[in-house]
Design a binder for these strands. Sequence first.
DNA 1: CTAGGATCCTGTCAGC
DNA 2: TGCTGACAGGATCCTA
Length: 291
Amino acid sequence: MPELPEVETIRRGLGECMVSRGAGKILRVKVYETKSFIGDTQEIIGAEVKEMDRRGKALIIHLTNKKSLIIHLRMTGQLIWREKNASGDISKSFAGGHPNDNFIDKLPNKQTRVQIECEAGTLYFNDQRKFGFIKVVETEKVGEDAFIKKLAKEPWKMTGGELYEKLQRHKGSAVKPVILDQTVICGLGNIYADEALYYAGISPMRKAGEVSLAEAEELVTGARVVMERSLEAGGSTLRNYVKADGTKGDYLTLFAKVFNRQGEKCERCGGKIVKTKVGGRGTHYCPDCQK
DNA sequence: CTAGGATCCTGTCAGC
DNA sequence: TGCTGACAGGATCCTA
């Protein structure tokens, strides 16, 4: 579930908690699900969190002992930080990733896969479907990681021309699955792919080879715009979320124009938004203004 | 090389 | 109240 804006929100939020305020030393690591933690927990004991980084949808936590954690949340991962004061009360918390009640639930719980206990608090990695992972690597070798190495540029660095060239390389496929490919353009997931295509007025099932250079430029711009909007909205709502007022904020409705809006009216042309399937994924678009 | 489908896993929801 | 199948904000692996 978490796409680039959610991971970036986590990077900032955890950075504030674990770097600026400080998490202190890592005292203990509990692994409840072995496939969720790749590496030896002993490698990170005693280290402190130095810096929060991100490549595409992967969060990267640099530690003080020349090791780094590559964290990918995939569909249902969450990271929840709970800082405790001397009397054991939660003095600060942050939650991000797949939105559900785990954010305000008791932890650890059934979906907790890894728990990293630090001097100042505990970081919980929850993941319903177990697709995500935390991986220990040498900081120097983060760039050599198979996943990280293949990542394309993010839309802020990519030109329309570059995207156009890449679309031509997959000209037989529908454009939507192509822009979901992280080696083509990095950061988009199922929501922002739909939203970016809507922005550019391109039908998700159009052949990638039939997207013009001008449209590719619109598509890159669209990707940028929708993720920036989400970053503003998601960032603030996620903070509100953990204020534990009980409300389950759906920040999607703050910016999504087509995602999960099937049956509703298109705000641009008044047409009816449709949900269908493209490349095996649920896909939302307006048939009237996306051609 | 590309394209398309199956696969990893748990949980929820609609329909009978 | 079960049961069943579809589906889920990701990425990889396999086959043709």
